[in-house]
Design a binder for these strands. Structure first.
Length: 916
RNA sequence: GCCUUGGUGGUGGAACUGGUAGACACGCAGGACUUAAAAUCCUGUGGGCCGCAACGCCCGUGCGGGUUCGAUUCCCGCCUGAGGCACCA
C-alpha cells in the first residue's frame, strides 16, 4: 500500500470538519494559549506560496500547544477594507463588496487546502457591518476621551468638561496648544461652538487640518509611494501639497507608554529599536530668537542648547508661517521660487535628498546672549511637522549643518576648540566650550541645563520633550472603509449614539472622489443631507483591534465581553511580517492601551510575543528578445545583440531552462517566437524580486498541494529555512520532503507485503533514536526553529529505517511528534496503528534522558587551534586523565614533537586544545 | 539620506551560550534493480595540493583589520542584498 496523500488529506479534512475538531471553547480547565497570525488582505491575486509561511508556523505551534495540553485559540479572518478593491471598482465597475467577498471565498478555499486548524466559527471580516459596528464604537470611545497627563491614562471627556467648569484648564495643559489658557468663568461664557472647538483639542480622536499630497487631475490624495518627482505614479499628473480637514488619533499622548511598554513584551530587539526610533523621544529646549526689525520671534527646537554660541544660521521649513512676513521684498522672488520647487517634492524625497538646496530669506534673528545677527534660511530638509519647524544650525557640531554651511559659504564659528578640525562636524557632548561667553571652559553636556535655565529665567525658552512621531492621520478620502459615526452641524462634530451603530456604508454608483478633496461619500445626496462625515477610516482601523473580536466573535451587544478577554488575555504568539513594524503594531498597541484605560479590557499590551516571518521572494526568469524581432536569444549569448529582457512565467521554466514549446503557447504574441539556443538549450536570466503577479514569478500553493499533498507542502515551507528569514522561493527541493514522508510511510507499509508494523518490544538503540528525536523536535518547536525540526524528523526516520524498526511502541510516539507538521499523515497512521480517538487530541510524548545517555565522546583534539586528531575518551574522565590520554596519542606526539606545552585547554564534553 | 536586517559549497540551509564549519535536503556524477521508464536503494560530492590508494597537508563562512588558546559567532571599518520611512497592505 503506497502513500496516497490526496485521498488521505481529503478524508481527514472531512472528518475534522464533521467532528468540529478545531472548535475552541471559552470555557476550559486547561491553561490557555492564543496563537495568532496577522490576518491577510484578500487580494484578487489569491494566495501565493509566501502567504502560508507564517500560517503554517502558527499552525504547527498551535497544534503543538494543544498536544501539550493547552486550550488553544487559533483564529483567522480578513482585513477586508482597503484601496485595491476600490481601485478595482473604479477600473472595472465591480462593487468592492462583491470583489472582496469573491476574493475571500477564494482565499478560504486555498487555506482549507493546506489543512489548518483554524476555528472558522470565529472568522472576522473587517468590512462586515457586524464587525465595523464595533470599530465605530471604539472610535467613539477615542472621540469621547482625553489623555489625562497626571494619571497618564485616557479618561472620559465629560470629566474634563466638569473640571473646566470648576477650574478652567489650569490643571489640564492642552496637548494641541500648550499656550491655551482659560478660567472657569471663561469656560462658562464660551458658546457651544467655542467649547466644542476647545474639547476637540483634547480628544484622542480629533479633527484638524493637515497637509496631504494632492493630485488635482485625479481629484485624490496620494501616498508618498505614489508620487514620483512631483508627479503621480498613475497618469503622471502634477501633485501638490494641500491642506485638508482630517481626523487624527492623538497617539503622541501615548508615546511614553508605548516606549515603556516595550520592556514588558517579547519583541525582537530590532523591532523594539524600530519602534522606539519611530517614536523618537528627545529631550531638548525650545528657544525664541528675536527677529530683526520684526515684532515676532522665531521659535526653534534643539536638543543642544549648549551650542547656542555656535549658531551660524537658522533653517526654517519652507511651509513655516513666518516666512511670508519676515522676508524682505528684495528676497521675495527667490524665496517664492524655492517654495515652488519644494511644493512639488514628497516628504520622502525631501529627507533623502543628497543634494543640498536652500534659500536665504534676507531676514536675521539675534542671538539672545550676544546679540549677534544670525541669517535665516529655508531648506527642504527641515520639515514643518517636526518640532517647531525651525532649527538653529551649528555647523561645527552637526554634520548636516556643516555641509549646508560649506555649500552656501556661510562662515563657521568654532566653539569646541581642537575638537573641531574644520574638515567635518563633531557632534560630541564632551567638548570643552570656547567662544561661548559665560560657558567658556565648561564641558558641553554640563552646559545644556545651564543654558536652558538661563533661557527660562529670561522668559525666552524652556526645556521640552519632543517626539519624532506625529499624531496618526485617521481619515481617508475614500469609499471602501468604515464610515465615521459623526454628524456635522454648524461646524461642530457630533458623535452618533451607540444605539445608532452601525452606521452602514451606503451603496454608491460612482467611486470617484467627491468635490474639494472630499471622499466619494460626498457624492451621495442622502448622505450629505444627513450631514454625515464624508471621510472614511483608514485601513488600520479594523486591524487595530481584531485580536479582541476573535475572543467573542458572535457577541452583538459588546465588542468583546470582559469575561472573554479576561479568559484569553494577551496574544501569546503573534506571527507576521516586519513591514508592519511601525504601523499596525503601534496602532494596535495604542488602541489596547485606551481600551485598558477605560476599563474595557484587563491588559494594556496586546501581544506578549511577536515572531516576524521573513518575506518569500519570487525568483523571476527572463527571456531576451532581439529588439524589433521575434527572435529570443539564450542568456549566455545575449550580449552579442541589442535585447529587451522580458519576464517569463516561472512555471514554464525548469530551473533556468525554458520549455520553448510551452513558451510559444503561453501568450499569442510569442506564437511565432524563434530561439537562438546555447548547447541546444534556451537558458533564462534570473533575478530575485518581490513575488507579484505582474512579474510572473508567483507560485500557487494549490498546484503544489495537488502534486505533492498538503503535508509535504507544509513541511517543505518550513524546511526552506528559518521562518524569520527572507528567502527566494524555489520549488526544486520539495521532492526531498516528499521522499521523506514516503520513507516514513514505509516504516508502516511495504508495497508488496502491505502492513509491516509490529507489536514488539523496542531495542535500546531504537529507543535512543526516538528519544533523541523527541528532545530535539520539542526544543526546536519551542524556539520556532521549524526548519531544523524537519531535518530532525528526517534523521530520525533515516535511522529507524537503517535499524529496520517497525515497532508500534516507537512509531506511535513518532506519529504524535509529526502531528503538528504533517497532520493528515499523522492522523491516518494513528488510525492505522489502531490508536483511539484523533491524534490531534493525543498527549505529547515525554522525553526520558535515560535512553540517550552517552558514556564516551569522540573528542576533537586541536593543536594551536587547528584540528589534528579525534580521540574517544570517557565522558567522566578527569582533566588529568584526559591530558595523559591525549599527550600519549601518536598523532598528537607527532605534532607536539618535543616542544614544551604552554597550555592545555579542556572543555568537558566539547574539545581539547593544546598550545605549544 | 535615515532606521532595521541579512551575506556560509553549484542551491536551500545547519552549527542553540566563543569550542570538530558545511548537519539535513536539493542538484550533479557513478552504480544496483527494470525489456524500458517511474519508484526505490547504494556510493561520491567545499576548493586546492601530494599520491596507485590510504594517511595527510594548505586554503576556506562578503572584504580588510582586531580581541582570543580558539571567531560563522565578539569589536572596528568597508562592500553589498532586503524591509520600512507616516494615504499600499
Amino acid at each position: 500500500m503506497e502513500y496516497q496523500f490526496r485521498a488521505i488529506e481529503k478524508k481527514w479534512q472531512t472528518i475534522w470538519q464533521e467532528k468540529k475538531a478545531y472548535k475552541v471553547s471559552n470555557e476550559s480547565t486547561k491553561p490557555k494559549a492564543y496563537v495568532l497570525d496577522m490576518f491577510p488582505y484578500p487580494s484578487g491575486a489569491g494566495l501565493h506560496v509566501g502567504h502560508p509561511l507564517g500560517y503554517i508556523a502558527s499552525d504547527i505551534y498551535s497544534r503543538y500547544k494543544r498536544l501539550k495540553g493547552f486550550n488553544v485559540l487559533h483564529p483567522m479572518g480578513y482585513d477586508a477594507f482597503g484601496l485595491p478593491a476600490e481601485q478595482y471598482a473604479i477600473e472595472h465597475g465591480v462593487h468592492p463588496t462583491k470583489s472582496t467577498y469573491d476574493n475571500i471565498n477564494n482565499f478560504r478555499k486555498q487555506l482549507d487546502n493546506i489543512g489548518f486548524c483554524f476555528d472558522w466559527d470565529r472568522e472576522v471580516k473587517t468590512c462586515d457591518a457586524s464587525y465595523y459596528k464595533w470599530t465605530q464604537w471604539i472610535f467613539l470611545q477615542l472621540f469621547n476621551s482625553y489623555f489625562d497627563k497626571q494619571q497618564s491614562k485616557a479618561r472620559p471627556i465629560d470629566i474634563l468638561e466638569t473640571a473646566f467648569e470648576k477650574q478652567g484648564n489650569a490643571n489640564h495643559i492642552c496637548p494641541a496648544d500648550a499656550s491655551l489658557s482659560f478660567t472657569a468663568n471663561d469656560w462658562k461664557a464660551y458658546s457651544e461652538k467655542e467649547k466644542q472647538t476647545i474639547l476637540m483639542q483634547y480628544r484622542l480622536a480629533f479633527c484638524g487640518y493637515g497637509e496631504v499630497n494632492w493630485c488635482a487631475a485625479l481629484g485624490t490624495v496620494l501616498a508618498n509611494d505614489e508620487v514620483i518627482n512631483g508627479f503621480s505614479e498613475r497618469g503622471g499628473h502634477p501633485v501638490e501639497k494641500k491642506k485638508l480637514r482630517q481626523w487624527y488619533l492623538r497617539i503622541t499622548e501615548y508615546a511614553d507608554r508605548l516606549l515603556s511598554g516595550l520592556d514588558t513584551i517579547q519583541f525582537s530587539e530590532a523591532m523594539k529599536e524600530m519602534q522606539s526610533n519611530w517614536i523618537g523621544r528627545s529631550e531638548g529646549a525650545e528657544i525664541d530668537f528675536a527677529i530683526q526689525g520684526h515684532a515676532g520671534s522665531l521659535k526653534v527646537y534643539t536638543t543642544r542648547p549648549d551650542t547656542i554660541f555656535g549658531v551660524d544660521f537658522m533653517v526654517v521649513a519652507p511651509e513655516h508661517t513666518l516666512i511670508e512676513s519676515i522676508t524682505p521684498n528684495t528676497h521675495k522672488a527667490a524665496v517664492a521660487e524655492y517654495i515652488g520647487y519644494v511644493k512639488s517634492r514628497s516628504e520622502r524625497e525631501r529627507i533623502s535628498e543628497k543634494k543640498i538646496t536652500g534659500c536665504f530669506t534676507g531676514a536675521y534673528v539675534t542671538n539672545p546672549f550676544n546679540n549677534a545677527l544670525i541669517p535665516v534660511w529655508i531648506s527642504e530638509y527641515v520639515l514643518a511637522g517636526y518640532g517647531t519647524g525651525a532649527i538653529m544650525a551649528v555647523p561645527c557640531g552637526d554634520d548636516r549643518d556643516f555641509k549646508f554651511a560649506q555649500h552656501f559659504n556661510i562662515p563657521i564659528t568654532n566653539i569646541i576648540g581642537a575638537a573641531f578640525n574644520g574638515e567635518e562636524a563633531n557632534p560630541t557632548k564632551e567638548g570643552i566650550l570656547s567662544n561661548s561667553d559665560f560657558l567658556n571652559g565648561m564641558v558641553q553636556k554640563k552646559a545644556i541645563a545651564i543654558v536652558t535655565q538661563k533661557l527660562e529665567a529670561m522668559g525666552i525658552g524652556k526645556s521640552k520633550i519632543n517626539y519624532r512621531m506625529r499624531d496618526a492621520a485617521f481619515s481617508r478620502q475614500r469609499y471602501w472603509g468604515e464610515p465615521f459615526p459623526i454628524k456635522w452641524k454648524d461646524g461642530i462634530a457630533y458623535p452618533l449614539a451607540e444605539k445608532e451603530l452601525p452606521l452602514l456604508l451606503p451603496t454608491v454608483d460612482n467611486y470617484s472622489p467627491g468635490p474639494e478633496g472630499e471622499g466619494p461619500l460626498a457624492n451621495i445626496a442622502s448622505w450629505k443631507a444627513e450631514h454625515y462625515e464624508t471621510n472614511t477610516m483608514p485601513g488600520f482601523a479594523g486591524s487595530s483591534w481584531y485580536f479582541l473580536r476573535y475572543m467573542d466573535t458572535a457577541n452583538d451587544t459588546e465588542f468583546c465581553s470582559r469575561k472573554a478577554s479576561d479568559y484569553w488575555g494577551q496574544v501569546d504568539l503573534y506571527i507576521g511580517g516586519t513591514e508592519h513594524a511601525v504601523g499596525h503594531l503601534l496602532y494596535s498597541r495604542m488602541w489596547t492601551k485606551v481600551l485598558f484605560d477605560l476599563g474595557h479590557i484587563g491588559f494594556d499590551e496586546p501581544f506578549k510575543k511577536l515572531l516576524n516571518q521573513g518575506m518569500i521572494q519570487g525568483s523571476s526568469r527572463f527571456v531576451y528578445r532581439i529588439r524589433g524581432t521575434q527572435k529570443f536569444v539564450s542568456s549566455g549569448l545575449k550580449h552579442a545583440h541589442e535585447v529587451d529582457a522580458l519576464h517569463v512565467d516561472v512555471n514554464i521554466v525548469d530551473g533556468v531552462e525554458l520549455d520553448t514549446a510551452a513558451f510559444t503557447k503561453w501568450k499569442p504574441d510569442y506564437a511565432k517566437a524563434e530561439f537562438i539556443l546555447e548547447d541546444g538549450k534556451y537558458i533564462c536570466g534570473v533575478e530575485v524580486e518581490k513575488m507579484s503577479k505582474s512579474k510572473f514569478n508567483t507560485v500557487n500553493p494549490d498546484d503544489l498541494v495537488e502534486k505533492y499533498g498538503a503535508d509535504t507542502f507544509r513541511m517543505y515551507e518550513m524546511f526552506l529555512g528559518p521562518v524569520e528569514q527572507s528567502k527566494p522561493w524555489d520549488t526544486k527541493g520539495i521532492e526531498g520532503v516528499h521522499r521523506f514522508l514516503k520513507k516514513c510511510w514505509r516504516l508502516f507499509f511495504d508495497e508488496i507485503k502491505g502492513k509491516v508494523w509490529v507489536d514488539e518490544a523496542p531495542t535500546a538503540a531504537e529507543l535512543k533514536v526516538l528519544h533523541k528525536a523527541i528532545k530535539k523536535i520539542e526544543e526546536d518547536t519551542e524556539r520556532y526553529s521549524f526548519n531544523t525540526a524537519v531535518s530532525s524528523f528526517m534523521i530520525c526516520v533515516n535511522e529507524l529505517a537503517d535499524l529496520n524498526c517497525h515497532k508500534k511502541e516507537i512509531l506511535s510516539p513518532l506519529v504524535i511528534l509529526l502531528t503538528p507538521y504533517a497532520p493528515h499523515f499523522a492522523e491516518e497512521l494513528w488510525q492505522v496503528l489502531g490508536m483511539k480517538g484523533l491524534v490531534v487530541d493525543a498527549a505529547y510524548p515525554v522525553f526520558d534522558a535515560q535512553y540517550v545517555m552517552e558514556t564516551a565522546k569522540e573528542y576533537p583534539i586541536s593543536i594551536n587551534g587547528k584540528l589534528r586528531a579525534n580521540i574517544l575518551i570517557a565522558l567522566d574522565a578527569s582533566e588529568d586523565e584526559v591530558r595523559a590520554i591525549v599527550l600519549d596519542n601518536e598523532v598528537v606526539k607527532k605534532w607536539v614533537e618535543d616542544k614544551p606545552i604552554k597550555k592545555l585547554i579542556f572543555v568537558k564534553g566539547k574539545m581539547v586544545n593544546i598550545v605549544i
